[in-house]
Nucleic acid binder design. Structure first.
Length: 489
RNA sequence: CGGGGUGUAGCGCAGCCCGGUUAGCGCGCCUGGUUUGGGACCAGGAGGUCGGGAGUUCGAAUCUCCCCACCCCGACCA
């Protein structure tokens, strides 16, 4: 059995699955479509979580927690919302088991009066709660975020990208005016874009969703779209302007300064463990993960090369002060003194797990007062003088973060093209993966036809492109600007 | 839910078509030794309801029927 990964060119999806499993991130659970996130995978998630959580708090939000179960009737209150989620809900119907001749069975006497839905998202139960929290303009805005698990009963699942249960955060805000809610919605999509670019190390396209792709119950959905290495798009975060839809559905009104009764304006926004999938697919190579230093649970692995305890002790002594120095400067380091694995094995293991920097120290280095420093992104190795190693590592981590982004950015630029002719578009979508900017007449029919014929969808209507008059590549009708097409996950 | 496929040791598989000793192989695991600067080597060892049930047969991993589970491709989706 090969110890490496399937080559990406052979089968991208198999490569991805192997990567997740072999890098020790996750595995299948006993429950179909659910995954076990293993400690190393979870450490990455925790890191992402803590950075995002800070960003939310810096923008004025607080964390709270709402119930896992939602009474079925709550879902019926917002028509579009229920339509969007009805097909994929896990439903609790009973509250007790009992012994019988056939073993443990659901007790038919323990049927719930009203079924409970395991939350696929929390708008309904949160707005049912906000109703009690809001009476006056003085109660607004409410800026709350929740870290939680949600369940969506999808037909097909894939590690991190689409699992039956997943972890996420969902922000739910309430505002006195439309302008405030819109401002919040836009602010949060920018927070996500900032996180993607400055932490996860890849560029994203910010835009709005078309009618057919919009969140069920939203007036406007903003999304960030990233380009993966196989040329497919991954929706990596969304922020929804909900208008007064949920306020009306749950009857959440407030009194304005001049004593008028009005419905509350809302936003909701979220990112999930899908970001882990994005991180993995955006950067990894056939040797394993490549993690951006800012999100790597451990940034530096130190591998001692020794034959006996005396040599290990000598190395340890040499390394101790450097480790203390690195830690003092905020660098996370692991000294791998296991004598149960050989150095070659450890090298391969840290590559698989995507540690940004690896330092090897052996007798030869002790003699020469050097270290061997290897970087994961380029796989380059250099023997460097021991003096100044700390600064060297710190600037290297910085450089790796920048290089990873630069590579991803270059890929995005190289794989984004403008196309005006539908025949060219069809051919392109078949042969060349990536983003296409094209004119569209703005109708659902045309969008559906393109999806039908090419499997490409409109990922978003990008915000920061210059308006450009043109004609729809399919129908020839007028278009006010290009939209972003791609095949998506 | 439609189409295709797979269930044999912890993991990956061969054996099945054409029934016949004690069911094999690679990886992993354990022990001992030699090793240790890129996934070590040698020797020994442990580990199996052959997915489940029924049937055919002197005899079933192998043939027949039923059931179950999982995977891939669609539809759906963050």
């Amino acid at each position: 059995m090969s110890k490496g990964l399937t080559k990406r060119s052979e089968n991208y999806s198999q490569w991805y699955n192997e990567l997740v499993v072999k890098a020790d991130l996750a595995e299948n659970s006993a429950v179909r479509g659910c995954m076990v996130i293993k400690p190393y995978g979870y450490a990455i998630w925790e890191k992402m979580q803590s950075v995002l959580d800070n960003m939310f708090k810096e923008t004025g939000h607080s964390n709270a927690y709402f119930p896992l179960f939602i009474p079925k009737s709550f879902f019926g209150k917002e028509a579009k919302h229920v339509e969007g989620f009805a097909k994929e809900c896990a439903v609790v119907t009973h509250y007790r088991l009992k012994n019988s001749d056939e073993g443990i069975v659901v007790d038919p006497d323990a049927k719930l009066e009203e079924e409970l839905i395991v939350r696929p998202t929390s708008e309904t139960i949160i707005w049912n709660t906000y109703k009690n929290w809001i009476q006056s303009y003085r109660d607004l805005p409410i800026l709350v975020n929740q870290w939680a698990n949600v369940v969506r009963w999808e037909m097909r699942t894939r590690f991190f990208l689409r699992t039956t249960e997943f972890l996420w955060q969902e922000g739910h805000t309430a505002h006195a005016t439309r302008e405030d809610a819109v401002k919040e919605t836009k602010q949060m999509i920018n927070v996500y874009a900032d996180f993607a670019e400055n932490w996860m190390g890849f560029p994203v396209i910010i835009g709005t969703k078309t009618d057919s792709e919009r969140f069920a119950g939203a007036v406007e959905t903003y999304a960030i779209e990233a380009l993966m290495q196989d040329g497919k798009a991954l929706q990596s975060g969304t922020s929804h302007f909900l208008g007064q839809n949920f306020a009306k559905a749950f009857d959440v009104k407030f009194l304005t300064k001049d004593n008028k009764e009005e419905y509350v304006w809302a936003s909701s926004w979220g990112v999930s463990t899908r970001l882990m999938g994005a991180l993995i697919m955006a950067h990894s190579d056939d040797k394993g993960l490549i993690l951006p230093p800012k999100l790597a649970p451990t940034q530096v692995a130190i591998v001692p090369i020794f034959k006996n305890k005396e040599q290990l002790d000598a190395i340890r002594e040499k390394v101790d002060s450097i480790m203390a120095d690195l830690k003092a400067k905020g660098v996370t380091v692991h000294f791998d003194d296991r004598d149960t694995q050989r150095p070659g094995f450890k090298f391969a293991e840290y590559e698989m797990k995507g540690y940004p920097v690896r330092i090897a120290v052996g007798p030869r280095d002790l003699e020469n007062n050097t270290f061997e420093v290897a970087r994961r992104d380029t796989l380059e190795k250099n023997v460097v003088p021991a003096d100044g190693i700390v600064d060297e590592v710190i600037s290297l981590l910085d450089e790796i973060q920048n290089n990873i982004y630069a590579k991803a950015n270059e890929r995005l630029i190289n794989n984004t093209v403008k196309i005006d002719d539908y025949e060219v578009f069809k051919k392109h979508m078949k042969e060349t993966p990536g983003f296409v900017m094209a004119h569209w007449d703005g109708t659902e029919e045309t969008e559906a036809r393109i999806k039908e014929e090419t499997k490409a969808t409109i990922r978003c209507v990008p915000l920061d492109v210059e308006p450009e008059e043109g004609t729809c590549m399919v129908t020839g009708k007028p278009s006010k600007g290009r939209v972003l097409f791609a095949k998506a996950y």
